[in-house]
Design a protein around this nucleic acid. Structure first.
Lengths: 118, 118
DNA sequence: CTCATTACTTACATTTTTGTCAGTACTTAA
DNA sequence: TTAAGTACTGACAAAAATGTAAGTAATGAG
């Protein structure tokens, strides 16, 4: 939960206003958000499929990150009135508009992260 | 300070291994790092100049963020043996290699962040 | 009636990040 | 002698992010 009046939050908002970079990074910078976005770039996925794709995240955190991505307009949540329930997640057009950027960020990382010993 | 054995830290490291995006975002995702990098894209700056450029950051946090950027190889710290002291910060070649990516991240943000009311 | 399936939620605990405030070392200038 | 400039550091506190473990509702299959 955010405390609207903390210096922390005030700073965050101030920065967004004059730094587009900081704004973008705030949207995609959560622990599991890159992985989620990456998965959804391949197309629509059910909640359970996301879970399978990302085995280390706890359900609580997965849901939290999905909710934030949704609130920020990067993904859509599609609920089907079925039993057992079916919920699918997919990128919005804003989300899709990140594709090129995400690819470049990913490439930079692949190129520069320290090599694994083996 | 990080606790090397917390699930939190273990997850972070695990993600880095198979997601270049997450790795990159971890390097540039601190609260003031985008602003610092943006400033240094314009060229070398003294500590005091950075402070002037980024008036809302406290000295402690500014130094912390600079140290991390340095540890991660994105900036260099140049110390001159003078009195009063002079310390300059500049991008390393790895830092420079981010220029294009940073520009794209910035552009996305400028294009998509909610417009200010006035 | 019991169990499995799906997509969660709740209460709580821990870890990490960010911020506040005061102080330091060194030297030159007034 | 006192003050000013520079680039910090340290002790502490608050806020935010992440993680754990257990539980829920609805329904159909056996």
């Amino acid at each position: 939960m955010r405390k609207e009046s903390s210096t922390n939050t005030l700073n965050r908002n101030k920065i967004h206003v004059n730094c587009g970079m900081a704004y973008t990074l705030d949207l995609i910078g959560g622990r599991w958000k890159p992985t989620i976005l990456w998965a959804l770039l391949g197309g629509k996925l059910r909640y359970s499929e996301l879970k399978k794709n990302i085995p280390d995240v706890s359900e609580r955190i997965l849901v939290l990150q999905l909710r934030e991505l949704e609130k920020d307009g990067l993904i859509k949540r599609l609920v089907y009135a079925e039993v057992p329930p079916r919920v699918e997640y997919e990128l919005t057009s804003d989300g899709q508009s990140m594709r090129h950027m995400l690819q470049i960020i990913s490439d930079w990382g692949d190129l520069h992260r320290p090599k694994q010993a083996n």
